[in-house]
């Protein structure tokens, strides 16, 4: 077994309609590392994750996971070590209740009843949603759904988590909770996201994709400080790192003669 856990080795993929999604993508990831996968829309993030889960098969190159080469014949084993959290939790929570959904993975792996219920409840406790166990997913809020989706993959005890936009469309509190949760896990994590603040908070390194190619692999700070790189890849630095523009609309003083302030005044009267 190699010293790194996941290894993409010049992987290329072209869709049947001729769209070239990935070309010669190579990077590696260590045990317990959290890697952010960033890039503009269409850069190839989704394709890369789909290849990893074996939903697509690369035309050339190879992907190694824990010393195992991902091929159609090994995919069942690969999926056992991989916890895939989909972008839309509604796609992931297909069973009638949260409990049954979390039990779905382990049950498919052959875990049976005396062990199954404690395993499920334990997982739900870890994600803080044990009280929702018997609720149907359509009664949950966005943040609860996300936590449930994460619980569904944790229950299968994967050694690596793959997350597609884990904080997408969550309110700030729920987003914060998910980030803290992910930080608490010891799993290796590959996190594809447009939320660069989240990536900055969580990831040890980032892989920047641009038009199907790896544009950079580096610690988040290094990448986010490199303005040319970001601009070239169609990205903006995280909000936290953006300098405030010298003359912005941050008017705090309301004064009658300033026309913007007057506008505020006007709307307030309405």
């Amino acid at each position: 077994m190699s010293h790194h856990y996941l290894h993409f080795n010049s992987v290329s993929f072209t869709y049947p309609d001729g769209t070239k999604a990935l070309s010669e993508v190579s990077f590696e990831m260590h045990h317990g590392e959290r890697i952010g996968l960033i890039g503009a829309n269409g850069a190839g993030k989704s394709t890369l994750l789909q290849l990893l889960a074996g939903f697509l098969v690369a035309q050339s190159g190879s992907i190694d996971l824990g010393g195992l080469k991902i091929t159609p014949s090994t995919i069942a084993e690969v999926r056992r070590t991989l916890g895939f959290v989909f972008q839309d939790a509604d796609d992931q929570l297909f069973m009638p209740t949260v409990f049954e959904d979390v039990a779905f993975g382990p049950a498919n792996l052959g875990v049976e009843e005396p062990e199954l219920t404690p395993l499920v409840m334990n997982t739900l406790n870890r994600t803080g949603i044990a009280h929702l166990a018997h609720r149907p997913p359509y009664h949950l809020s966005g943040g609860q759904k996300r936590a449930a989706a994460i619980a569904t993959v944790l229950a299968s005890t994967p050694s690596m988590l793959v997350l597609d936009e884990p904080a997408n469309a969550l309110d700030p509190m729920a987003r914060r909770r998910i980030i803290e949760q992910l930080r608490g896990f010891t799993h290796s994590q590959l996190i594809a996201s447009h939320d660069l603040d989240l990536v900055l908070d969580l990831c040890h390194r980032v892989v920047v994709l641009h038009e199907g190619k790896v544009a950079a692999v580096a610690p988040p700070m290094t990448v986010f400080k490199n303005k040319e790189l970001l601009e070239h890849c169609g990205l903006l630095p995280p909000l936290r790192m953006q300098e405030l523009p010298p003359e912005g609309p941050q008017l705090k003083v309301v004064e009658g003669h300033h026309h913007e302030a007057a506008l505020h005044h006007h709307t307030a009267e309405k």
């Binding site: 895939f84 779905f104 498919n108």
Partner: peptide
């Protein structure tokens, strides 16, 4: 498209044709 994604999510968790009973 959604059916396809759900199918993937099921596969990713080891689905092999048997839906566990409640």
């Amino acid at each position: 498209a959604r059916a396809g994604r759900i199918h993937n999510a099921m596969l990713a968790r080891g689905f092999s044709g048997e839906v566990p009973a409640g």
